[in-house]
């Protein structure tokens, strides 16, 4: 579903991603992890077309990302920090988004998170008046709203209260069972462990490990994801080719 070919990105002289070759398929729920500055957000932004790669290319469903915005119809995105126009009301935001997406019929809307996260109750509040966590809830509901087959979630659980956190994780698990592709970036490994079946570990712009959770478990002989990651960092052994 998403494939990268020799993907590189430099900011000035600093190489953030170098020669990344990855393949992500439907049904995978991928934990994209790595230390700060490893290139996780850059990678997701390149997939979204927000950052232009220095060289190489990304294909989503066989379509080159640089060739046009239509592939984003199948993409739901939840950014790390959401900031909306301060004066806009929540219901106006959803109305605007619906108007921007005439390609999705009203019967196809996925309103599950919209309902369970109780977005309705904030309908008449200005987005600028919402707290950070509430904005994250709006952002999460929006990412799933148009029923995308691919979801890119950047630190989705940061700032959410425990209840909303569980709701979101349940939704992510469910989406993964529905054969969607989900890529989650986070530093909260405990959360990731519950929702992911694959791991991509980026280190200094390169893939240090990419494979399923079972493969990682076998390789490291650990049961908890955070232990596995620690052992991964310690082991110098390079990567497993990603399937």
């Amino acid at each position: 579903m998403i494939e990268t070919f020799q993907l590189s990105k430099c900011y000035g002289k600093q190489e953030v991603l170098s020669d990344l070759n990855l393949r992500c398929e439907a049904g995978q729920s991928i934990a994209l992890i790595g230390p700060n500055g490893a290139g996780k957000t850059t990678l997701s932004k390149i997939i979204l077309g927000q950052v232009i790669p220095t060289s190489g290319r990304v294909e989503v469903d066989g379509a080159d990302v640089s060739k046009g915005p239509d592939y984003r119809r199948e993409l739901g995105y939840m950014p790390q920090i959401s900031r909306f126009p301060a004066q806009m009301k929540t219901h106006q935001l959803f109305r605007l988004m619906r108007r921007l997406r005439p390609d999705v019929a009203a019967s196809k809307y996925d309103t599950e998170l919209y309902e369970t996260l109780e977005i309705d109750q904030m309908n008449d509040k200005a987005l600028g008046a919402l707290s950070g966590g509430m904005q994250q809830r709006v952002s999460a509901a929006l990412a799933f709203y148009f029923n995308p087959r691919i979801l890119i979630l950047d630190e989705p659980t940061a700032g959410l209260d425990p209840l909303a956190n569980e709701t979101l994780k349940a939704k992510i698990r469910k989406s993964s069972e529905e054969q969607r592709l989900i890529i989650t970036t986070s530093h909260i490994l405990n959360d990731l462990e519950e929702i992911c079946n694959h791991v991509i570990y980026l280190l200094e712009g390169k893939v240090h490990f990419a494979g399923s959770l079972e493969q990682l478990r076998e390789r490291t002989n650990e049961t908890k994801l955070n232990k596995m990651v620690v052992s991964l960092i310690k082991s110098n052994q390079a990567r497993v080719q990603y399937q």
Binding site: Q50, R72, I81, S82, F84, M97, L100, D103
Partner: peptide, 11 residues
């Protein structure tokens, strides 16, 4: 940030 959100749509 809002432009970023819009840029993630098929626009």
């Amino acid at each position: 940030e809002f432009l970023l959100l819009l840029a993630a749509q098929p626009i």
